[in-house]
Design a protein around this nucleic acid. Structure first.
Length: 613
RNA sequence: CGGGAUGUGGCCUAGCUCGGUAAGGCGCCUGCUUUGGGAGCAGGAGAUCGUGAGUUCAAAUCUCACCAUCCCGACCA
């Protein structure tokens, strides 16, 4: 009897499988919308599958997830930021999406599917046709009408919600899993940051703030469950709301060097925030009593904090005021932080509420302040220059700062007395080792992947679209919205990034491309192949997503592939053990192998897998 | 957009300094041998050396331009 490449000899049902339609149905992974139980599993013989594994990763792939997803035959790049999901990649992607879908449904989410292409008008209504800038892909149709490829869907959903008219219909949780297009300035690390990707985006609609708070909390809990099921250790952290606006947001962060965000975390777990908005407690500094007025003193060639520390009559960095000159909405604006602190750009954006921000050019500083960078300060500047100062400078006296005259500085500056601060705000970067604002423990700064982000949007978009309902008093109320996002492919990459070893990927059962592989050591051994086919049928019947490795390859090749691809369990059928009525059962994550009676293996594997879904 | 790097069969690389018409490994095809950890032998297919221009008797190699990709910084799921 011939095995191996013979696709005309399926396990079952033999007659059905000979029709092309039945065969296609069988090999198609179909994930239905409502429950895990209805995931239909295909007939999967490895000898017929397209799983192009590679021994070497392309040299321009650096991130572990990127390398392994390519080597394992999950993805291929078409161009920068655009990836093809190969059959194996699509299976994982669908399973991640299905976990998300189930948890959204569990909190009452209703699934939609919105167009990816939008008219200019709705983006103009929210003001984002302008503010999204180059991030938005734009195009025109044959009539010359301006269109955009959707990068998010607040506008469209808020428009749909025009048909909700009564508070009695609220809250509503609406979501979709759909493609987003973002013209990222720098796509990177395989699936971690791309320009075209599937996102689950959901939106809540409530009559009031209390309703929004509750909707937000329900999403937060759903997200915690989602990440737990995906095998991701995702920590909710306080986040900046960025371009979305709104009153608050949390990011779900997965610790990884491949990430792009830094999170300040208290080791006790009582505080975690993106450095874009993190704060910390600083020890108080005792200042000497200031002189009656600041003193100007010569500082030839001093242009840096460090140089000012070292010069005769200078001051340590924590007694200096660093003056950063920016242009905000066209106006020169000063941001002051302590000399040893770093200005955080996101905090500048968040506190000013503007996205039109750039550092001033030296010529602009010279024009408005009278000196070049290195000698700039806020003492005695014109009243029409708005000054923001960091909290760490509040109450400080006897400070040193630039005198707005090259080669001169002030000392003895009493900030309250000498500088006209308009806004006392948080502007500085938190550094590792600074004290937690809750418990005083030293904070750690941890590199993370942003796996999800939830926002309290408030009424911004509903107002723009005119989305209102009548409340219990018959009064018109603008609905208040939340929006909640999870990148499907990004999460897939995050799992790969955090769960692999030298041999390859280690998928959790919940998203594994196959739950178990049956590896036939010697396909030409009839007894082996028969046992394998029988077991394969039993597992299919039990609803297990199983692949039969019936390739006529040496066993080493098959073991390596199964490990690279990260299939959680492997059943090895070899002639010797089989004579004793046994097969090997191997767990990918631990590497443990046990011999199990052939008669017991199906039940044991099924129990193991179903307990881990 | 600023800085750095790279582009040679499907994948990894050599060749480039010092021009002479492309080499090896993996993979693929055929045959034989092999069969519990990426097999061996023999034969074979597959490359306008990113694109274009220039220099030269001659360009993968030198020059210029462009394109693409990756990495580091400003943005976000």
């Amino acid at each position: 009897m011939e095995y191996g490449r013979d696709i005309t000899k399926p396990y079952r049902p033999a007659d059905e499988m000979t029709s092309l339609g039945a065969y296609q149905r069988a090999i198609t992974i179909k994930v239905t919308r409502h429950s895990r139980g209805s995931i239909l599993l295909g007939a999967m013989r490895w000898s017929n599958l397209f799983i192009p594994t590679l021994r070497d990763a392309p040299n321009d792939a650096e991130a572990a997830s990127h390398r392994l997803l390519i080597r394992g035959g999950f993805i291929r790049q078409l161009m920068s930021g655009h990836y093809t999901l190969l059959p194996l990649g699509l299976k994982v992607h669908e399973k991640v999406a299905e976990v998300v879908r189930q948890e959204m449904n569990a909190i009452g989410g209703q699934e939609f599917l919105l167009p990816a292409m939008h008219p200019k008008s709705i983006w103009e209504a929210s003001g984002r046709w302008e503010t999204m800038g180059d991030e938005m892909f734009r195009l025109q149709d044959r009539k010359g009408t301006d269109l955009a490829l959707g990068m998010t869907h607040e506008e469209v959903f808020a428009t749909l919600a025009l048909e909700v008219n009564s508070y009695k219909q609220l809250p509503q949780f609406w979501y979709q899993i759909q493609w987003k297009f973002r013209d990222e300035p720098r796509p990177k690390s395989g699936l971690l940051r791309v320009r075209e990707f599937a996102m689950k985006d959901s939106y809540s609609f409530d009559v009031d703030q209390a309703g929004l708070d509750a909707s937000y909390d329900r999403h937060r809990e759903a997200y915690i469950k989602i990440f737990a099921r995906l095998g991701l250790d995702a920590v909710p952290v306080e986040a900046s709301s960025g371009a979305m606006g709104g009153s608050g947001s949390s990011e779900f962060m997965v610790r990884s060097d491949a990430g792009e965000d830094d999170v300040a975390m208290c080791p006790t777990g009582d505080y975690a925030a993106n450095v874009e908005r993190a704060s910390s407690a600083l020890p108080a500094i005792e200042d000497a009593a200031p002189p009656a007025a600041p003193e100007k003193f010569p500082t030839p060639d001093v242009r840096t904090i460090k140089a000012l520390e070292e010069i005769e009559g200078g001051a340590p960095a924590d007694r200096q005021i660093k003056t950063m000159v920016y242009v905000v909405d066209g106006n020169v604006t000063l941001f002051l932080v302590r000399g040893d602190h770093q200005l955080n750009d996101q905090k500048v954006i968040d506190t000013t509420g503007s996205t039109d921000i750039r550092p001033a050019k030296p010529a602009e500083a010279l024009e408005h302040l009278g000196a070049n960078p290195g000698s700039l300060g806020a003492v005695g500047v014109s009243d029409d220059i708005v000054i923001y100062a960091d909290h760490a400078l509040e109450g400080r006296t006897s400070m040193t700062t630039g005198a707005n005259e090259d080669d001169w500085h002030w000392r003895g500056v009493d900030i309250a007395r000498d500088i006209n601060v308009a806004h006392w705000v948080d502007l500085r970067n938190v550094s590792a080792g600074e004290a937690c604002i809750h418990c005083g423990s030293p904070l750690e700064i941890i590199r993370c992947i942003e796996a999800g982000h939830i926002f309290k949007l408030g009424t911004k978009y509903a107002e723009a679209m005119g989305t209102t309902v009548l409340d219990q008093n018959g009064k018109t109320q603008t609905v208040t919205m939340g929006s909640y996002g999870i990148g499907i492919g990004r999460n897939m990459a995050a799992i790969a990034e955090t769960s692999h070893d030298e041999a390859g990927l280690i998928w959790p059962v919940s998203v594994a491309p196959y739950e178990v592989a049956i590896t036939v050591v010697k396909v030409k051994d009839e007894a082996s192949m028969e046992a394998a086919e029988t077991l394969y049928g039993e597992l299919l019947d039990a609803g297990i997503d199983v692949v039969l490795d019936d390739r006529d390859e040496r066993p080493g090749v098959k073991f390596k592939d199964a490990e690279l691809i990260g299939i959680p369990y492997r059943i090895t059928i070899g002639p010797k053990a089989l004579e004793a009525g046994e097969v090997e059962f191997n767990e990918r994550a631990t590497g443990t192998t046990t011999n199990v009676a052939l008669s017991d293996i199906a039940a044991q594997v099924t129990a193991e897998i179903t307990s881990r879904r």
